[in-house]
């Protein structure tokens, strides 16, 4: 009778421990970069740039960490993702921390639930032509700004682009700040379509390029389009299969050793128990 009450007590104590923690698990928030980054943050170098996915298979597999074979996402090639920092493993491979928080997955792509960051080898990413590349390429064509937009009256909102022809909006300006304070514009650049552009270095947190001849056209397109870097781009392919834990650990390579060790322990123990304990309980010689 006493043992039955004891068993019941243990059962209820265990239930009270399990259910609150299940609720806690559902409410738990995944911290940026996780355990790996907390242990290795000093070895990480900040990058804070967007890159294009460019895996040889046609997609990029993102892992939980460089030391884990656990897949957390599979993303098709050609997608812009934000890389926060990079880390070098012992084999000299460079790994990038991929921001998955705002990633919008398409059909065929997978992102593990409640995962906001992951890691992937940087060889799977291509550089994106950015404002710095545009500036380096066309710096010689910049002329002095002569007040072309100083008297402009905003009708809807001025559009601020990453660079001329980028087709990527940085921000919009619906009205001038601080009692009609006009931004300080720098340079005047005329592109191959004859459109004139000017640059805002800083205006209440905003910066980028404004098309002088068509400052509010959100459908603005140029004949030359966004810039491209000279690099090999692999074709797009739909990721295959579900997310899994790969046996081939990308950075560490000791997963197989752990598998063998566990198998050996199980085998030895299975043999050892009958040897040590021999006869069945209750038998007396």
């Amino acid at each position: 009778m006493r043992k039955n009450y004891l068993s019941l007590l243990i059962f209820f104590v265990a239930m009270f421990m399990i259910f609150p923690s299940l609720t806690a698990r559902a409410d738990a928030i995944w911290e940026p970069f996780g355990d790996f980054y907390e242990q290795h943050w000093e070895e990480c170098e900040p990058i804070n740039e967007s890159y294009l996915t460019n895996g040889e298979e046609g997609f990029v597999t993102v892992y939980e960490s460089p030391l884990s074979g656990k897949e957390v996402a599979k993303i098709k090639n050609g997608k812009a993702v934000y890389i926060g920092c990079v880390w070098n493993d012992r084999k000299g491979n460079l790994w990038g921390a991929v921001d998955l928080h705002s990633f919008k997955q398409e059909e065929g792509e997978t992102v593990r639930e409640e995962v906001y960051n992951g890691w992937a080898p940087m060889e799977n990413f291509a550089e994106i032509y950015n404002e710095g590349d545009f500036r380096a390429e066309h710096r010689n064509e910049f002329k002095e700004y002569a007040g072309e937009l100083d008297d402009y009256e905003i009708k809807n909102e001025i559009l601020i682009w990453t660079y001329p022809g980028s087709e990527e909006l940085q921000s919009t300006l619906p009205e001038y700040w601080n009692e009609n304070e006009v931004p300080t514009y720098e340079y005047l650049y005329t592109d191959r379509d004859g459109l004139r552009w000017t640059y805002i270095g800083y205006y209440y947190g905003m910066k980028g390029w404004v098309c002088v001849d068509d400052p509010e056209n959100e459908n603005l397109k140029t004949s030359y389009g966004p810039g491209k870097k000279e690099q090999e781009l692999y074709p797009v392919n739909t990721p295959d299969g579900e997310l899994q834990m790969t046996l081939k650990n990308p950075a560490d390579g000791s997963l197989k050793a752990v598998l063998i060790a566990v198998a050996a322990v199980v085998l030895v123990t299975v043999i050892l128990i009958p040897v040590i304990f021999g006869k069945k309980r209750g038998k007396r010689e």
């Binding site: 068993s7 243990i10 104590v13 265990a14 239930m15 421990m17 399990i18 304990f277 309980r281």
Partner: peptide, 29 residues
Amino acid sequence: YYNKYSTYMRKGFLCSFCCNLVSYGVGLL
């Protein structure tokens, strides 16, 4: 294994069930 090889333990399956329930619960916490 408890039923087959233990000397003093009784109700091996119940013991195993309770042991694993508690350890799993603690692990979750």
